[in-house]
Nucleic acid binder design. Structure first.
Lengths: 242, 242
DNA sequence: CGTTGCATTGACCGCCCTCAATGCCGGTGG
DNA sequence: CCACCGGCATTGAGGGCGGTCAATGCAACG
């Protein structure tokens, strides 16, 4: 039993830009089904082509690259609403792998329909470009964080982003959001060692600034934490949902 | 006296994917003029909107973000053939600034024509998305380098990329390519201090692996340098030129 | 009840940062 | 013509942030 795009549970959130009825109708045809991925499953593989593209309905995952010496760099976290596989769609192969951290429910699209989309739905084509530009923005910000900030600021930045984004898709409950990653994942995303990530998280916990444990993240006063590290206030521009 | 897209001096290089006559004709109309930017000029500004988009015909520049505490992160280097301003085109504002390092000649497009492009030229729309995905790829690779590699590997990676890319646009002469940046620019791109960047460059010079001085870069044996740091061989996929 | 995965904590030290001084070059004005 | 200055490259000294190594605890699982 799959969800109709017209009743997409994600579209209600202000995070996502509105969409016209006719475009929505096309999207419904574009969507060919749903896929449930179990934790640990590799959904897309670096350097491989894929005939399918996805949108995350629920659950969370990781985008990562593997270096030749076996290290891993997490280049992003896949959260509900995120589109997966655009690189494969336009460049033929993925430049990073995508793996499910929790059970994930995914909308499935056929890559072969992508060209039809570009020909007949310029607004959706525009939205796809918007999504790509948005990824570029996120990566640019991450690069700045890795290049210029120390461990405390990096972790504070990441936790704040999680808090904001997960709240925006309705996952905050009782002042906390689910964060089902391992400390190693965060370490690999921020260019830190597991040990140092752990110690820094412990410091935030004892200072009551942020508490991430047992899969839940609680940030009592996001603005206080942000001001401590000079992060600009949470400007949440809307983005497309495809 | 501006260059007609049909005679674009860049399009001859294998780096760029071929394009149909009719698409080329549209491009010629899309291009509204040329702009010459002097060294030091800010072409686009972070957090600002721009009514114009550009393609680099010649010259080089920098993309960078400024952090609230005054630091600078170089998120990319603008080389001939690079498109500038896509973020502003689809997301309304730029997420990084672009500044000319040398004198630059730029093709100028009107942002207001972008929508027409998406409606009437799906192949160009696809190419734009391709370019955005390509930027995402570059940033992901940069993130991996900053997150996982030490100073020597970071600098080797950057120098190899310059060597390959500048060669691909015909700028290699007498076994060297022009590299008109300051050491500070590279340091800010790689998340290193100027001092350490300088010392590491000196080490490469004395080991005869790479010599960057007085605006020119000479890498005698790129493959040797690449193998020293476990970089995959130079896979140069083609990309669109708009 | 051994094993496996993840979180936690302590000891040690190295890469790279900061601070600081010097040299070189081109531009500018007295 | 020369003194001065600003921008950039270079080099040495010293120290700190965050790295690796290693051991322990704990919970889930076969």
């Amino acid at each position: 039993m799959t969800i109709d795009c017209a009743n997409c549970p994600l579209r209600q959130f202000d995070l996502f830009s509105p969409i016209s009825k006719s475009t929505l109708a096309f999207l419904s045809r574009f969507k060919t089904g749903e896929l449930v991925a179990q934790p640990g499953t590799e959904i897309l593989t670096e350097q491989a082509s894929s005939s399918q593209l996805f949108t995350t309905l629920s659950g969370m995952g990781l985008r990562y690259k593997t270096t030749s010496d076996g290290d891993r760099q997490v280049v992003g976290f896949v959260l509900p609403g995120d589109f997966i596989g655009l690189q494969s769609g336009v460049m033929d192969v993925m430049q990073h792998s995508v793996e499910a951290s929790t059970e994930m429910r995914l909308c499935v699209f056929n890559r072969s329909d992508l060209w039809t989309l570009f020909r007949s739905q310029p607004d959706l084509a525009f939205s796809l470009t918007h999504l790509a530009a948005n990824e570029e923005h996120l990566l640019g910000e991450a690069l700045t964080v890795l290049g210029q900030m120390d461990a405390q600021a990096r972790i504070a930045w990441a936790l704040l982003r999680f808090d904001r984004r997960l709240t925006a898709v309705g996952l905050r409950k009782n002042g906390r959001v689910p964060l089902p990653y391992r400390q190693q994942d965060l370490a690999d995303a921020l260019g830190l060692s597991l040990v140092h990530t752990n110690k820094t998280l412990a410091r935030f916990r004892s200072r009551q600034l942020a508490n991430w444990s047992e899969g839940w993240l609680r940030v009592p006063e996001p603005d206080t934490l942000a001001s401590l590290y000079d992060f600009e206030s949470s400007i949440t521009a809307t983005r497309p949902l495809i």
